[in-house]
Design a protein around this nucleic acid. Sequence first.
DNA 1: ACCTGAACACCGTTCAAGT
DNA 2: ACCTGAACACCGTTCAAGT
Lengths: 250, 250
Amino acid sequence: MNDQPGTSRGRSEPTTWVDVDPSKDYTRPPPLSRARVVRAALCLVDEKGLPALTMRALATELEVSPMALYNHVRDKDELVDLMVDLMLGEVDISATEGDWLTQLRVLVRSFHQALAAHHHLARVYSGRVRIGPHGLLLIERTIGLLLEGGFLPAEASDVFFALFTYAAGFQQMGRIAPLREGRPGEETEYYPLLPPERIPAITAVSPHLDGVRRPGRFDYGLELLLAGVQAKLAQAKEAPASHRESGHHA
Amino acid sequence: MNDQPGTSRGRSEPTTWVDVDPSKDYTRPPPLSRARVVRAALCLVDEKGLPALTMRALATELEVSPMALYNHVRDKDELVDLMVDLMLGEVDISATEGDWLTQLRVLVRSFHQALAAHHHLARVYSGRVRIGPHGLLLIERTIGLLLEGGFLPAEASDVFFALFTYAAGFQQMGRIAPLREGRPGEETEYYPLLPPERIPAITAVSPHLDGVRRPGRFDYGLELLLAGVQAKLAQAKEAPASHRESGHHA
DNA sequence: ACCTGAACACCGTTCAAGT
DNA sequence: ACCTGAACACCGTTCAAGT
């Protein structure tokens, strides 16, 4: 993030007598490994976005032939899976302060932060991706907390799903721009804009809609869900054995 | 959905004397238009998935040169935007039975169903996509219901965001496979699988985790959110003017 | 105005070859 | 075991040309 791993760059070559130029990399970080490939790929995507992730581009970043990558990674799909798991490794699943609900809140927030820190990659976090060890531990911890909270297995997995679905989806909807930003010069009848009288509610609310991910927005929805979770749990305790009952709606 | 708008299909054209060969297209359905291009693209993605959407493939589907498409669509990005808006046009935003909350529930469910019906495309529904007229009307209706329900603008947009974030994210997390399906033949140490004793909660819950989108799962999370919405609204009515208060958490 | 064919600058990946 | 260069079968898109 802080140093650009640019285009042309020196190699090891211990020429003892030359002055050291701090603008150069000297030691090439070991020979190239699966881990280094994945880390470099994640870095590249964080900096330049997902479309910039190209086997060829990644190879030049690592100062290596494109085909060298295939010694450490089956193909691009596997590479992306590994990147996702690397990202999920950043989620803090070890907090143990407070009761299960506050631990759960901390966990989901940490998940959200990891996704936000790699939002370009987060766009891909989906069914396409196989769950790696970090992902597995993350799920394990979450389900564990829910069981501890008193949920039965069926409902625990429903709740897990709702929480992570929300957090993952948040990255996707993120940069919604409800109105075409219409610099009026830009040949901009891309869409025939709707007349404002047809969208009164949006115009009434628009200063709050914007904010492109205004602070606290994620937490607001999370609290909505957690309030629902507590309500479900309370109502399950009233009618203990009939947890079928708690699944209905409308 | 029920009829495949496939490759070869007869049309009107009363060719009175020749035998009709049903394996041939006779009349090219009108000359080719923006709408037809977009519809065909959505069809193609629904049938064969997003990676199958290729300007070239779409062109052959329409029996036209690849370059012909560019007369009706600026580029592939615009095409995708138009496809998304076409999908959003399927959302029913006109239901008016019941109070605002049940109308809201119906609306979000309809949104979810539209996404599910085009789940390949739904994976792309994100910040990258500009909101078209259908998307705008969908948002308009939702915010309108929330305002009707008594939310102030700031909170209304938070709630809107939470609901649609959840529904959109649901498509993404959908096909989670928490364990590598490990046909043990398949050179499958893709990931070093975690020993089962490290994931006790998952194994306890696993029959319920699976189900790959078991029925009612979406609704469960939606009810969680709506319960939270009602709680927020109730607590806002207790302390009327201080809606700042209702934004805090933890 | 709409469509075409050839061409350009890219992709991911296979393959035979080097060390 | 690891890396390389050339090559293949694709992409999206530009361009000059046709009607």
